[in-house]
Design a binder for these strands. Structure first.
Length: 610
RNA sequence: GGAGGCGUGGUGUAGCUGGCCUAACAUACGUGCCUGUCACGCACGAGACCGUGGGUUCGAAUCCCAUCGCCUCCGCCA
């Protein structure tokens, strides 16, 4: 409880001479002025210690009557989290009094004068402990949470990363240029946050999901090399690593090729790791095509910190007596497997649990084969020949004591199910080294992917991604791209690339389309008629007719990058004021209702949804 | 939209196979004592209608139903 009788002083013209964490042995004898918070107070009666904190750390202040009776009197009233100005002299601590766990533990500040600049109620969260706190409370009292050491560290990390990005890209000739946050809603992509127009009631701006179109127009505008650290907005459900507003490092360059973008980004990562993490990164990063990533890892963002790769075991079972395997292959499916090291001994119960996991991921079932003391344990043992048993063992590189998981299904399902089990099991078995940063490029994505719900073909990345050169030629020659058969559409590849680290998509980019004719063909491929395309993207198509240079770029999720660098489990820990997973802000209570007057000004009326 | 986990003094937890709970422990907080502490120590004290609503029961923190909030995952996120 704040003590109402405590006398609060003015800062006056006091200036800080030192930050708490930066007072050292070289300052002994000096008079210093410290400004900060009370981390902890230890009252020994006629001797009071105050650990004072600012964003640099802690320093011990000693108060006794001999040094200053007045300062001692004030120190008796001081409590945790009070804001203080302390004027004192730096003294070296006697040998037995040195605290080696404290950065400033070899000195202390003897208080000559203490001013209480403000009092504080007992905080609802522990500020000085690093222990986990209830996150809802942390968000409600974010201004207190931010005083904690880990949060200060994360914010500093975020700042240093932004600065390194700006310095590096500026040195490489990139200009930071701002683009509108309020723009027009575009049909593709995520749900938009809408902003009603007061001057033109009934019409809406959309908060930009990314500066994609504007940065392409900047290229047409001759700015050549552009970047921006920019807030983006997407109205979709949240996750530990997803917020409705988040920050991108957006980069675009004229006359870019894949190689020039990759080189730039590798240099950027090298710089970040050096400046922020103080580590050397090996470049260039490994590259993997999308198809290869899918078949080896069952994911377009593989975690390569550990093995357990997916193997094709279809050949092993080409003459199988097991009906499910046989019918799967006959209907065009495939048999894929991963090997769980040392898991042959797991219980029946755990095998059942694995099967349940496989089914929730979309598999029809899961076959396990445990290699145990020269024999095998498997529900399909009676169907297996000696050749199949040893062939499987060899194909997946299993040893005695290992357990093999097999999924029989269409390629896509088989590999994604195993890809997920691979991650889950590696996590569970502790096979993922936590100190590694494994970067890799995923390249040559399909241009289109089928929407499972509507059955329609959509852009895998966005509609402005250039197809590979040969596919572009084919498209330009095709009168009606929308009428191409599905198997042709599925095999059009894009000049697109993702930067992946430790199983997380860090950045995504592409070489863009810069010709009106090709862009129109791709729009039609996506089911947009020429008229619809003109209606929605006419300004872009027009721009392409006035000498648009070839161009391409990439965009990073900055918060996600900082999260990984700082070793955090959630993006919320590196954002000063994040939202909860239901999109609310417990601190400000946003979103909140508005007055009818405000709605009327905007030409809006409330309707009940139930 | 779906699945799972959690919700008990300021905070973190225990209790949750119903009665011993008039709710325990730690910490924080308040008061007092203490001149070398640094997670200071010691003593005393205040502080919770157990997320909310309903039900079962002689009796509910505990069992059931509903609901709200937070977290994680799936869907979704060009």
């Amino acid at each position: 409880m704040a003590n109402e009788t405590v006398e609060i002083s003015d800062l006056g013209n006091l200036r800080r001479t030192h930050y708490c964490g930066q007072v050292g042995l070289s300052d002994v004898g000096k008079t210093v002025t410290l400004l900060g918070w009370v981390n902890r107070r230890r009252d020994l009666g006629e001797l009071i210690f105050i650990d004072m904190r600012d964003r640099t750390g802690l320093v011990q202040v000693v108060c006794n009557r001999a040094a200053s009776a007045e300062a001692f009197r004030v120190a008796e009233a001081v409590r945790s989290e009070y804001v203080l100005a302390v004027i004192g002299t730096v003294a070296a601590r006697a040998e037995g009094q040195i605290n080696r766990d404290m950065a400033t533990g070899s000195i202390e500040v003897v208080a000559q004068e203490i001013r209480i600049l403000n009092t504080a109620k007992t905080p609802p969260i522990y500020i000085r402990d690093e222990a986990e706190q209830d996150e809802l409370l942390r968000l409600k009292y974010r201004y207190l949470d931010l005083r904690r050491v880990p949060m200060q560290r994360n914010l500093e990390f975020h700042h240093k990363t932004s600065m390194a990005v700006r310095n590096y890209l500026s040195e490489q000739g990139y200009w930071e240029i701002e683009t509108p946050m309020m723009t027009r809603s575009t049909p593709e992509g995520a749900r938009d946050f809408l902003v009603p127009s007061r001057l033109d009631p009934g019409k809406f701006y959309a908060l930009a999901q990314s500066p994609q179109l504007f940065k392409q127009l900047l290229m047409v505008g001759g700015t050549d090399k552009y970047f921006q650290i920019v807030r983006c907005f997407r109205d979709e459900d949240l996750r530990a690593d997803r917020q409705p507003e988040f920050t991108q490092i957006d980069i675009e360059s004229s006359f870019a090729t894949e190689e020039t973008v990759w080189e730039l980004v590798e240099g950027l990562m090298k710089r970040l790791w050096k400046d922020v993490m103080n580590q050397e990164l090996e470049t260039p990063f490994p590259r993997l095509t999308y198809d290869e990533a899918m078949s080896r890892f069952g994911s377009d963002k593989p975690d390569t910190r550990f093995g357990m790769e997916i193997q094709d075991v279809t050949p092993v079972f080409k003459n199988t007596a097991f009906g499910v395997f046989r019918s799967t292959v006959e209907s065009g499916g495939t048999l894929r497997a991963i090997c769980l090291p040392g898991q042959a001994g797991v219980s029946r119960h755990e095998v059942d649990a694995l099967t349940v996991r496989a089914k929730t991921h979309g598999a029809k079932g899961l076959v396990t084969v445990a290699y145990h003391e020269g024999d095998i344990k498997s529900a399909i043992k009676k169907y297996l020949t000696e050749d199949e048993i040893s062939g499987l063992k060899q194909a997946v590189g299993a040893n005695d004591g290992d357990m093999v998981l097999i999924v029989a299904d269409a390629f896509e399902t088989a590999v994604t199910v195993l890809g997920r089990l691979r991650l889950e099991m590696a996590n569970k078995l502790g096979l993922i080294p936590k100190d590694k940063f494994n970067f890799l490029w995923i390249t040559k994505f399909p241009l289109l992917k089928r929407n499972e719900e509507t059955g329609e073909w959509e852009a895998a990345h966005h509609p402005f991604t250039s197809p590979m050169a040969e596919d572009a030629l084919t498209l330009l020659r095709t009168e009606a791209p929308e009428a191409l058969p599905d198997d042709v559409k599925a095999h059009i590849y894009a000049r697109m690339y993702d930067l992946v680290m430790n199983g997380v998509e860090l950045a995504s980019g592409s070489i863009r389309i810069h010709r009106r004719d090709l862009q129109e063909k791709v729009f039609r491929l996506l089911g947009l008629s020429n008229e619809e395309a003109r209606n929605k993207f006419g300004f872009l198509l027009d721009a392409f007719e006035y000498g648009a240079p070839p161009h391409g770029g990439i965009a990073f999720g900055l918060d996600r990058l900082v999260m990984l660098m700082a070793g955090c489990d959630t993006i919320r820990d590196v954002i000063a004021f994040p939202k909860t997973s239901s999109g609310t802000c417990p601190l400000t209570d946003a979103p909140a209702p508005v007055d009818d007057k405000q709605l009327a000004d905007l030409g809006l009326a409330r309707i009940d949804r139930k």
